[in-house]
């Protein structure tokens, strides 16, 4: 097995330094191999965005102070890294694109100025030529003209492509995508995902893809980690997870998504609501909503290997294919 690019071990993020402070992330471990795309799926409040932000050390000070564990990036623990070194990694080796492209771009600067700034930090020579090439790479028509334009003159889909061009300016090894398609229309999302696949191949980069949408996951990810209430409850290769999900939460979530192929009378549902941070149940956080829960689920389940690189955190992993 190749050395992982990113290796997160026992990452816990609390609201403050105290051991008793509520934890947003609770002992999360995962690996991302070079060139691999790992999907991070979960509902709001599951901690998936916090995880992505924590890798770049961009959490608000209170949460940053409450961060423990290890985030090993190419052999170096980012949690122990001085600010300057961290700044070099951010936007350089690791870069990020967010849900709202408008807030990632400066509204009073031209697209060109923002792109050239990123390219300059990447040490490119002819900035203008590089900027044009960067826009061409993300399929933006009449790039020379667009460079003189401002973000508000573009559509949401185009802005998101500009944001990716900026994110890729320094040839990152890892691109963290935090719900980059959620604000986009379906047909634009489709095209953007196709573009990301092309860029991933041409740059040979790995991706950490945060989303709540299983359709998106199946389109772009190699592996997937399902999060619930601050924990990873199941992780494995995409095909394996979709064909043989073992955790009751993964199964219920997959089953509850409507499909264009068939229309059942009712959707199978997960009763209740996801717990809020600070009100999470002890043991397996899913047990109050779980159809298979027993008394044992009040204690934290261990991580069990149930297949080739398929791990599940559950006392009662389900056997039948979905």
């Amino acid at each position: 097995m190749t050395e992982p690019l990113l290796s997160i071990r026992d990452l816990t993020v609390r609201v403050g330094r105290a051991d008793t402070a509520p934890a947003i992330l609770d002992g999360v471990s995962l690996d991302v191999a070079p060139g691999e795309t790992l999907g991070l799926v979960g509902e709001s409040g599951s901690g998936k965005s916090t995880l992505g932000t924590a890798v770049l050390r961009l959490l608000p000070p209170l949460l940053d102070a409450g961060t423990t564990g290890r985030i090993v990036w190419r052999g170096r623990d980012l949690l122990g890294l001085p600010r300057r070194a961290m700044r070099r990694i951010r936007g350089g080796e690791v870069s990020m694109i967010l849900q709202d492209p408008m807030s990632s771009l400066n509204p009073v600067q031209t697209i060109g100025a923002q792109l050239r700034e990123a390219l300059r930090r990447g040490g490119r020579g002819d900035l203008h030529a590089a900027a044009v090439a960067a826009l061409v790479e993300v399929n933006i028509p009449s790039p020379a003209e667009r460079l003189r334009g401002y973000p508000h003159q573009m559509s949401g889909g185009m802005r998101q492509r500009v944001v990716s061009a900026i994110g890729l300016a320094q040839d990152p090894h890892l691109l963290i995508c935090d719900e980059p398609t959620t604000a986009l229309d379906a047909t634009i999302q489709y095209q953007f995902l196709e573009l990301l696949k092309t860029l991933r191949a041409s740059h040979g980069m790995a991706m950490l893809f945060i989303t709540h949408d299983f359709g998106v996951v199946s389109r772009i990810c190699d592996r997937v980690a399902v999060m619930y209430a601050g924990r990873i409850v199941e992780t494995g290769p995409v095909r394996e997870i979709f064909a043989r999900p073992r955790h009751p939460y993964t199964r219920a979530l997959l089953a509850s998504v409507p499909s264009t192929d068939h229309a059942p009378d009712r959707l199978p549902v997960i009763e209740g609501q996801p717990p809020t941070v600070g009100n999470r149940p002890a043991g397996c956080p899913f047990h109050p909503r779980c159809a298979h829960a027993t008394d044992r689920c009040r204690t934290v389940p261990p991580e069990t290997v149930v297949g080739p690189s398929h791990l599940v955190r559950c006392w009662h992993p389900q056997e039948t294919p979905l």
């Binding site: 359709g215 199946s218 995409v238």
Partner: peptide
């Protein structure tokens, strides 16, 4: 057809689309 192709099914083995969505509004 484009809308249907863009409604991504939760299935990694879903068929490749005959009419992928193109262009912008």
């Amino acid at each position: 057809r484009a809308l249907l192709a863009a409604a991504l099914p939760a299935d990694p083995d879903a068929h490749a689309d005959t009419t992928p969505p193109m262009g912008e509004l």
